Amino acid sequence: MKILLYFEGQNVIGKSGIGRAEAHQKRALQSVGIDFTTNPKAEDYDILHVNTYGPKSYQLVKKAKKNGKKIIYHAHSTEEDFRNSFVGSNQMAPLFKKWLVSLYQESDFIITPTSYSRKLLKNYGLKQPIAAISNGIDLRKYYPDERKRTLFRDHFKLTASDKVIICVGLFFERKGIIDFVEIAKNMPDYTFIWFGHVPMASIPHKIRKIVKKDHPENVIFPGYINGDIIEGAYSAADLFFFPSYEETEGIVVLEALASQQQILVRDIPVYEGWLKNGYNCYMGHNNQEFQELIRKITEKKLPNVSLAGFRTAQTKSINEIGKELQTVYQSVLDLPYNHEIYRRIM
């Protein structure tokens, strides 16, 4: 079999979670020996696996259908996680949902990262089979490394006694950026670092104001940083704090788990079935709870659950995701479905 992996707008969203998911797909297919191409002009493929939602994606899907190719849509986005993001996103969300549904309906099969996002898609009235397959994580890349840890702390001129809380994400309200800064105001003895970037013109004024100037001195917005420094940050920080209100999975959470870091997240439905409060992570509901948990975790007044978190990351390794994708591809090629394979992936 040969797969055409398609990703539109690499220059615009390549640094996002969707961009990292597509990179993971390439690694996953290589790990199980599946032949693939990323050339949209290719003709010698069996399945089109689409990750994006722009007009070029739509045109390629139409072309593939006309040529009798099988189509898998990777549903990274939903109406729910589009809200509270870009300027005008809440007003556009119903139209965005209609556009997503019109695209997803063109597929033979849908993949989405979690059981939660699968449930959302089912509620949209989609009839295609939908498999929940994690975006996966490169365990080797995020394994704790003392050299990377030192690079991170040196880059930010952190002392051994500095307590450091990190988050990674776009500058979206739904990611919890307002809460992150408010909590930092009440915890001046901690350093809070939010890694990530998005064009300022694309986000609401109140978020631009927070990032540019309306934040306390103990909050740092270094922008988008990749490589050794961010990889070192995950394990060298005292806590990964991700107060997002809505996700389809949250690749950054997987990255933190793979780094054997303690994590604190908001208690939201997307984590059901793979994160458990007090077992492989800690969860809170509001800023007061978050502040109390940050202190208790960093002061070692709660059990360290990072190893259980790492074991969770291991179940979502690139190799495991490759095997699951292979099963889906074979099922789609075997239409009408091989029911034994179908039961395994659903």
Rank of each mutant, 00 (worst) to 15 (best):
E324D: 11
K301Q: 14
K301T: 00
G223D: 12
Y282F: 13
A256P: 07
M283A: 03
P222H: 08
L264K: 00
S235Y: 08
R266V: 03
V305Q: 01
I297W: 06
L333S: 06
L325M: 13
I220N: 07
P222C: 13
I321C: 08
Q288P: 01
L257T: 02
H215W: 13
Q291P: 01
A313S: 12
K300Q: 09
N280R: 02
L335W: 11
D334N: 15
F242M: 12
Q288E: 10
F240N: 03
E249C: 05
L325C: 03
F290E: 00
Q291A: 13
A233M: 10
V198H: 10
A256E: 04
V253M: 08
K323N: 08
K323H: 09
L275R: 10
D267Q: 10
G227M: 14
A258C: 09
K301N: 07
Y271T: 01
Y329Q: 06
N277I: 01
I203E: 06
R311H: 15
E324Y: 05
K209Y: 13
F240H: 05
G223S: 11
S331G: 15
E249T: 04
I268G: 00
N304I: 01
D334Q: 15
Q262N: 14
T298V: 15
Y279C: 00
A201T: 09
T327F: 04
L293I: 07
M283S: 04
I230G: 05
E299H: 07
F221V: 10
V328W: 10
D228W: 13
I318P: 07
K301R: 13
H205F: 09
K323L: 12
I230F: 11
K213W: 13
L302A: 00
Q260Y: 12
K323T: 09
V270Y: 00
K206M: 00
I294H: 03
I318R: 02
E292V: 03
G278E: 05
I294L: 08
G284S: 12
K300S: 08
P199L: 07
G273F: 06
I207Q: 08
I263G: 09
I297S: 01
I225G: 11
A233L: 07
I297D: 00
A256C: 09
S244G: 06
E255R: 05
I225C: 10
N280G: 04
D334K: 15
A201V: 04
P216C: 10
G309F: 07
G250T: 06
I230C: 08
T315S: 15
E320G: 12
E299F: 11
N280H: 06
I297G: 00
K296H: 05
W274T: 02
G227P: 14
E289Q: 15
I207A: 09
S306E: 00
G309W: 05
N304T: 00
I294C: 06
M283I: 05
F310V: 06
Y234I: 06
G284A: 13
W274G: 03
E249S: 03
L302N: 01
R311Y: 14
P204E: 00
F221Y: 13
Y282H: 03
A237L: 08
Y279Q: 08
V328H: 07
L335H: 10
Y224N: 15
K300V: 01
E217P: 11
Y245G: 02
K206A: 03
F240Y: 14
I251L: 14
A256Y: 04
D214E: 15
S202D: 14
I251G: 09
A313H: 08
L325G: 02
S244L: 04
I318T: 12
V265S: 01
K323W: 02
E292K: 09
I220W: 11
Q330C: 07
